[in-house]
Each structure stands twice: as C-alpha cells, then as structure tokens.
Amino acid sequence: MLVSIYRYNPETDDKPYTQSLEIKLPEGKDLMVLDVLALAKQEDPSVAYRRSCREGVCGSDGMNINGTNGLACITPVSNVVGPDNKLTLRPLPGLPVIRDLVVDLTTFYKQFEKVKPYLVNDQPAPDKERLQSPEERKKLDGLYECILCACCSTSCPSFWWNPEKFIGPAGLLQAYRFLADSRDTSTEQRLEALGDPFSVFRCRGIMNCVSVCPKGLNPTRAIGHIKSMLVS
C-alpha cells in the first residue's frame, strides 16, 4: 500500500512536504490506520505522531485520514482506502504543526477552558453527593463522552476562520453538558458568557463535527440547544 505522510519539521524544513512510503501489509488482516503508521515508522523512524491508548479512549491520535478527520487507532484501513489502495495522512487542519502529524492544541484547549468545563454549585455541599434523578442524568448522555480528540473543531470552517473567538464544537458540547446538568447553578452566568456574536453564533450548522466525531456525538444538536436557551 502506498502511504503518503505529511512531513514538516520547523527546525530543519523550509516548508512541508509529502513523503510516500510503500508499506507491505500482512495478508488477511484489516489493520487500523495506527498500525499502518507503526509500520511506516519502522521504515522511517523519524515520522512523528501522537498515540497512547490505541483503542479510541485517549483521543491522542486524531489526524486527517484521506481527507477526513478521525482517530487512527479505531479507523480500519478498509473504511478509508479506495480502489487506488492509497492512504494519505495529514495533521488535523487549521492548527499550527509542531512536527509531522503532531499539532499544537493550545488554541483548542484555551477555547475548552473558556466554557468552565466543571460543575459550579453555590449551594452547601451535602454529606455524600449531589443526587440526580435518572431523567436528569439521562440529559447528559451524548455530551459527557467527548474525549477531546479535536477532530470536530478542526473540521469546522468557523473554527478555522476565528479560532481565537469561536469556541468550536468540542468546547460547545461541553458548555451544554454543564448547562444541562441539574446540579450546576451557574446557568445564567454561563449563558451570559456565550451571548457574543462569536462564541456560539458562528456555528452555521455545517455539521462537519457530527460527521467526523469518532464517538458518534452530535455537537450541532448541543449548539442548537444552547442557542434555544439564549433566546428563551
């Protein structure tokens, strides 16, 4: 299989280039893209990428695989490679490249931090825990599962254009996760902080975030709920 990898080392390269490697895959096995990258690294040990859990939990190996963002560890090669038997790997778009497939996620995390992704409750703490009914708890399904792999935000044109001002789908999914939480008491303050023209309202409902989310989450729906809360 022909594997093309985006290569760029700011310390030694003037500009990025694509390196093509011919990788021999074991027969009768449908490898994950991360396995192919490991084989590529055997060919050329200088290829840089992030990885950790290798089972879609840590969110480290988000990258652009044949034009679509995804996690290399849970993307089977057969799902992304066409009849040309070619695999093209690029870093997540719209963020500065540290090296090869490793991007600088500082902007992404800054936006995440803005939404105060933690429970705020001004009531005295109970002896054991703050209880929720099963119905209240159910509202958090489809929100808390985000692993912050950045596949969604880096596939969003609004995030490419205004990365410093638009919070992006990942951050907004978490913003709604706490707005929807019955134990959180700062709903008003959270909504006030989101009312400017950029933080939420730059979402145009393109839904790239939904189509790339490796966990099958729906940030567009969460953003819609935030907008509804802001105009209600």
Binding site: L191, E192, L194, G195, D196, P197, F198, S199, V200, F201, K227, S228, L230, V231, S232
Partner: peptide, 18 residues
Amino acid sequence: MVGKLNYLHNRGVLDWVI
C-alpha cells in the same frame, strides 16, 4: 422558540433574533 429574550442585550443574541 423565541421566548422572553432575557439575553437580548448580548450582541450575538440580538443579531441572531434580527
């Protein structure tokens, strides 16, 4: 869908409603 508009003083909300 549009209710009391408690957050209309925010520019983003106002633009959206307009």
